[in-house]
């Protein structure tokens, strides 16, 4: 390996640049692929329908998928540590119905919102503790979280609860931006992505998340706090679940215990499509955002074509497959280099 590096450096500048580039940014490739697909989808749809990239559609893309974006941020943290969190959909449903029911019983929203977030984080904490301190596999621990969240949602209420609190109504108010518009829910989602990306890239905690995903054993031997990091990623994912519950309740104007059934799979799919490796150690929050946009665009295209929405999952499934095969090729190539 070192010899090929040396030869590359001695040859032309172009080769050097390429070698340096692949040496540094090879892990960005899947995310670039996701961006390419997103652009291709958008351009293709515009060419086909002629009226696809309207301000209304583009604005809706963000607002319709705000909750998904928030969940994807939390999931990215978990998957980068080589874990998985199946509980996010039901945590979102639980915190959503919990918030709606508390508001309906007259508790001020300033108290309700923190309660929703803490409830989400608490389920995350439970999962994290099971994973870290009791050696439970993430799949199983978060499966318990999935059951727990869903069951608790039904314990709170078996039916949908309408929310007419002014704060939540305000959260879905559209703010015009020229021909485009945005709502506070969308702004919150974007902020979550930005904060997530900054934490991942510019804090020691974020870097430890990557290190744990690369090799947990090494990270421990390097003297870093693996236990805290692993518990924290599940807490963050749970917190994101709580926030998504808030956004979805505000967006739909109601809490509903059947919300988010199967959403955990959508979230995992968008995170993978966004370039995060399920084996851990590589991935980007911004990539996951791209993944959400790909997902949302496919959904919009299908409703534009008037086709069955069931096609969405078929196409996302196929896309997921393509990405995983490509990732697999990349990983096995880089392993050969070692």
């Amino acid at each position: 390996m070192s010899t090929t590096d040396t030869t590359a450096r001695q040859s032309t500048d172009v080769a050097t640049t390429i070698s340096t580039f692949t040496g540094r940014y090879v892990s960005l490739l899947p995310t670039f692929a996701a961006i390419t697909i997103l652009i291709a989808l958008l351009v293709g749809a515009e060419l086909y329908f002629g009226n696809f990239l309207t301000p209304r559609n583009v604005s809706a893309l963000l607002l319709d998928n705000a909750y998904l974006m928030v969940l994807a941020v939390g999931m990215t943290f978990v998957i980068v540590t080589a874990g998985i969190d199946l509980s996010v959909g039901s945590v979102m449903a639980f915190t959503g119905i919990l918030g709606a029911s508390l508001i309906a019983s007259g508790i001020p929203v300033i108290i309700v919102i923190p309660v929703m977030l803490v409830a989400g984080a608490a389920i995350g904490l439970l999962i994290g503790v099971l994973v870290q301190y009791f050696n439970v596999q993430p799949f199983i621990a978060s499966l318990a979280g999935l059951f727990l969240g869903r069951g608790l949602a039904y314990v709170v209420s078996l039916n949908s609860i309408r929310v007419e609190d002014p704060v939540l109504v305000w959260m879905r108010t559209r703010i015009p931006l020229g021909d485009f518009y945005i709502a506070p829910t969308g702004i919150i989602a974007i902020f979550t992505v930005i904060i997530g990306a900054l934490v991942m890239h510019f804090t020691r905690f974020g870097r430890t998340v990557y290190a744990v995903g690369g090799s947990e054993q090494s990270t421990r031997l390097m003297g870093l706090n693996v236990a805290r990091t692993k518990v924290m990623v599940y807490v963050i994912s749970g917190l994101c679940g709580g926030l998504a519950g808030l956004l979805l309740t505000a967006y739909t104007g109601a809490g509903y215990p059947r919300n988010g059934i199967g959403t955990e799979l959508d979230v995992i799919a968008v995170v993978v499509i966004g370039g995060t490796l399920l084996t851990g150690g590589r991935g980007y929050v911004l990539g996951s955002m791209i993944g959400v946009f790909v997902f949302g665009t496919i959904k919009t295209i299908i409703s534009f074509m008037g086709a069955e929405q069931s096609w969405t999952h078929i196409i996302v499934g196929v896309l997921l497959l393509v990405f995983v095969v490509v990732q697999r090729a990349i990983v096995s190539r880089s392993q050969q280099k070692e």
């Binding site: 069931s310 096609w311 969405t312 999952h313 078929i314 196929v318």
Partner: peptide
């Protein structure tokens, strides 16, 4: 050689869509 959890996730996502069709 795809991880089982993902390989089967593909069908888990797409399968119900196929059933609906």
């Amino acid at each position: 050689g795809i991880q089982p959890i993902i390989a089967t996730l593909v069908l888990m996502l797409a399968g119900r869509g196929v059933a609906l069709l």
